[in-house]
Simulated assay, not measured.
Amino acid sequence: MITVVGSYNVDIILKVNKIPEIGETVIADEVYINHGGKGSNQAVSAARLGSNVRLIAAVGSDTYGYNAISFWKSEKIDTSYVTTKNVSTGTAYIFVDKNGRNIIVVNRGANYYLSEEDLDKGLSGDILLTQLEIREEVVKKALREFNGIKILNPAPAILKDTDILSFADIITPNEIEFKELVSTDDIEYGLHMLLKKVKKAVIITLGDRGALLATKSGKRVLIPAPKVNVIDETGAGDVFNAALAVYLERGYNIESAVEYANKIAALSVTKMGALGPKLEEVNKFLEELEKEEN
């Protein structure tokens, strides 16, 4: 069982020729409304890869919230610990340019009201996956009280209480989040700082360059990602984290789990939207990669 503690947002995606500058107005070529939020994205992506997934999250008492719960049930996610708050459901506004690059603005809505009490009795399973689109004290309780492998995706990397890191086995920042956490461009020094706090490993996701794995024991490995035709990078980090959790749950060592996570995240950027690919798509993609490698 993978337990995800995190956020849900309605993603309003605006496909534009270019990201607007300050003061500039641009015309959207297309508009999509999808399910999103890091917690939801990671839960759905893990479930699509075949894992049993429980989601602990909060939605609003509105149509968006009702639709979210129905959607999770259709994806075979355990929604027993999803709570409904008397506020609006979280919303994210995502601008995606013709090269697949994006900027995102989030209104947290119900995500802000997910409480420590909402976690009670739900913190069980083999893997915990959590992020920072909910309140820090909720994340801290989840990491402190969960008994399995604990993965923290520090996104967004705005931490008032850095002690949270000491409760995580693995953290998975991207390059920007890594620099925000350590306030330095010196990667080795930054890794040293983080590994003094984290229990097992730091994984820096590097987009099309793959991921850098650094462990407490001193291992440093740059694990490449396959080259693909990028359509939309939105949610690639969430797919990576979900796949990492799935392969760790299956008993793979951390290096192998990162290799699979890189491949599945690469597949995810070849289509629009933040949700991960389904298992049959993944199996086909992995078979094609294996043929290319041989």
Rank of each mutant, 00 (worst) to 15 (best):
T3H: 09
G6W: 04
G6V: 08
N9Q: 04
D11F: 00
I12C: 10
K15L: 07
N17K: 10
E21I: 05
E24Y: 11
A28F: 02
D29L: 03
G36P: 05
N41M: 03
N41E: 12
R48W: 04
S51N: 10
N52Q: 14
A58D: 05
D62K: 06
G65C: 10
Y66Q: 15
Y66L: 12
I69C: 11
F71Y: 15
W72A: 09
E75P: 10
D78M: 09
V82N: 07
K85E: 12
S88T: 04
G90L: 05
Y93M: 12
K98T: 08
V105R: 15
N107H: 15
N111H: 05
Y112I: 11
S115N: 14
E116P: 09
E117P: 13
D118K: 07
K121Q: 15
G122W: 02
Q131I: 12
A142P: 07
L143H: 00
N153T: 08
A155K: 08
A155P: 06
T162R: 14
F167G: 09
P173L: 06
N174V: 01
K179A: 10
V182A: 09
V182L: 06
S183H: 15
S183I: 00
D186I: 09
E188P: 01
Y189E: 15
Y189R: 10
H192K: 15
H192I: 06
H192G: 11
V198P: 02
T205W: 00
L206A: 06
D208F: 06
L212M: 02
L212V: 03
K219H: 11
V228G: 09
V228P: 06
E233N: 13
G235W: 06
Y247F: 08
R250K: 15
S256I: 13
S256P: 00
A257K: 05
A257D: 00
E259V: 13
Y260W: 10
L267S: 05
G273L: 06
L275C: 14
E280A: 06
E280G: 03
V282F: 04
E287F: 01
L289Q: 12
